[in-house]
Design a binder for these strands. Structure first.
Lengths: 190, 190
DNA sequence: TTTTAAAGTGACACTAGTGTAAATTTAGTG
DNA sequence: CACTAAATTTACACTAGTGTCACTTTAAAA
């Protein structure tokens, strides 16, 4: 009986990602999204009542993927290699972290005016955060990472660093390698 | 003859700063700004034809202050102390760097549609960038900073790091100290 | 006190996004 | 082939920001 759908949830999520990265949260509109999907704006409203619900769903979807990868990871017994694995995982999802950060901040601001429903992607983000925190704390206990540095700050440094987008001619991998080196051992010669 | 002004350029710049930090570029409007200044929206249009011109002027003003401080700085002969001074200077203007970054990016995007006049604050930002670059390169020549790290990347790491705003209970100074320590010597125990 | 010109305001037309409801299209069913 | 119901579109009313212009206010000069 029903008519064929013109776009899938995957299409929607994919274009949501591209559009968010391109224009940012504030300029993200259903009009632009509809254009990308070659569909009318109202069609999207049939699935999502507004952009916040859509973005929240999209980010939840991505964070779940990330957490699955995280849980299934076979961690190296070597501490530095373990750190590298962790860093690479974060790096591969840097877009999602960035989007999630911005979105959470925007929701906080709206909260003051509108009582908005809890943000699930934020919770997932924090769960991931917790995983990493315990790793860092254990590293500090065994003296592998400097004890005086606050774990929260370390995590924030890592998350921020992976968002750096230099316009230079480095490949993603090269850049990741250099950043990891700085975070781990610093920019000064020993 | 003339009537007393209800607000000064300083008021305008100050509220521009506060509002930009509070709501961000996209949600920055003359209506909100006018409210803060207890003045009508149209009054601001007498001085600035749109928000881009205002923000550009404000950032130019800030960057000029920064460059002056930079030029008048008495640099320590100790390399690490020199680095610390540089870091502190950047840190003290972290808001401005952040705002300048966002603004430049937004202008780039608009450029595609509207042919926009050159962005002076961007030029100043890049001049400051150049100053730092030469310091880093000289440090690399003398082997004080690791030679293999691209200078551009180092600068970007520093600029990004100063923007980190952890919600923890650290003071600005403490946070700056820890971040500097990580960038300089890394988070791992030697 | 009158005049003047800068400073500030109110109102208008325009643009763009939001959310909704009625109308239309379409793939499969009987 | 007509019917059905989901999928989609069109049209509308509403909200909010933008830039402009005629008009009003006001501090000081004459």
């Amino acid at each position: 009986m029903p008519r064929k759908k013109k776009f899938t949830v995957e299409d929607l999520y994919h274009q949501t990602h591209l559009l968010l990265m391109k224009v940012g949260y504030d300029q993200f509109t259903f009009s632009l999204l509809a254009d990308e999907l070659s569909v009318s704006r109202a069609a999207i409203y049939k699935y999502y009542s507004n952009k916040d619900v859509l973005i929240s769903d999209y980010l939840t979807f991505e964070m779940k993927k990330l957490l699955e990868e995280f849980d299934q990871m076979e961690w190296s017994s070597d501490r530095e290699e373990h750190f590298n694995q962790l860093f690479e995982l974060i790096f591969n999802y840097s877009d999602v972290h960035q989007l999630s950060n911005v979105f959470t901040q925007k929701m906080k601001m709206k909260h003051e005016k509108i009582q908005f429903k809890e943000n699930i992607s934020k919770e997932l983000h924090e769960r991931f955060f917790g995983h990493i925190q315990s790793f860092i704390l254990s590293c500090q206990e065994t003296g592998f990472i400097k004890k005086e540095l606050p774990a929260n700050l370390l995590i924030n440094m890592i998350f921020h660093s992976v968002m750096i987008n230099t316009s230079s001619d480095l490949t993603q991998k090269e850049r990741a390698g250099y950043i990891r080196e700085i975070l781990a051992h610093g920019m000064f010669q020993k």
